[in-house]
Amino acid sequence: MGIFSRMTDIINSNINSLLDQAEDPEKMIRLIIQEMEDTLVEVRSSSARVLADRKTAARRLEQVQAEAVSWEQKAKLAISKGREDLARAALQEKHAIEDEVAAVEAELKATDDHISQLNEEVAKLQQKLTDAKAKQKALLMRSKTVESRIKVKRQMHREALDGAFQRFDQFERRMDTLESQLESMDIGREVPADLAAEIDALAENERISDELERLKSEMQGKPDPS
């Protein structure tokens, strides 16, 4: 693809559409800007050659125009000397030079049109580059804003968790305090271990006695008194 065709494609491109389709918009905008900058360098280099060609064509035009004037003056001189044959020959040379003048003028006009188009397209490309850089700046600011918000949310989440754990610890300490208070109220009022064992033994002994009496009654054929 030629440099000027590439420049036209860049000018006609839709940056927003390209960024919307890109997996990594920041990387894509960097590539777009790099392409634009490289294209601008190449276009300006090509434009310099076009401007040099125009200067050459302009000098050639001045030269052939001067030659045409010179041959006309020679034709006048020949006429004044009665040499119509020489005058005719001089006018033939003049006409040949005038054909070259017309060709150089056409070349110069085409070159001027090309330069004018280049100026217009370079201006558009420069504006496109400015827009792309503004878009890049907006993307960077947006990225930083998102990162900052994520950082803040993470900090808030961490603080919320810390607060929840702190409240849980406070609740545990409060329960420990209440349980300790409850236990302290029973101090001095506990039933001795030996006494509790004796009471349990009495209950067990009574159950066994009842069972023994039931068996005796069954063996003697008497009905169970219970």
Rank of each mutant, 00 (worst) to 15 (best):
I3Q: 02
R6L: 09
M7H: 00
N16C: 00
D20K: 12
Q21R: 13
P25I: 05
E26L: 10
L31Q: 06
D38A: 13
L40E: 00
V41R: 08
S45R: 15
S47A: 14
A48G: 11
A57L: 06
A58L: 12
A58V: 09
A58D: 03
R59M: 13
R59H: 11
Q63C: 06
V64D: 00
V64C: 10
S70G: 09
E72C: 06
L77E: 09
S80E: 12
S80I: 07
G82H: 05
D85W: 05
A89T: 00
Q92R: 07
A96M: 13
A96D: 11
A96P: 10
D99Q: 15
E100W: 06
V101C: 07
A102W: 11
E107Q: 03
D113V: 04
H114Y: 09
H114A: 08
L118F: 10
E121T: 02
K124V: 11
K128V: 04
A132L: 00
K133W: 09
A134Q: 08
Q136A: 04
Q136G: 01
K137F: 05
M141F: 15
R142S: 07
R142A: 04
V146N: 01
E147V: 01
S148A: 14
K151P: 03
R154M: 13
M156E: 12
H157S: 10
H157N: 10
R158Y: 07
L161C: 12
F168M: 07
D169Q: 08
Q170A: 06
R174M: 10
L178W: 04
S180L: 04
Q181R: 06
G188Y: 02
A193T: 13
D200W: 11
A203F: 13
N205D: 13
I208T: 08
E211V: 11
S217R: 02
M219T: 05
Q220L: 03
Q220H: 09
D224H: 10
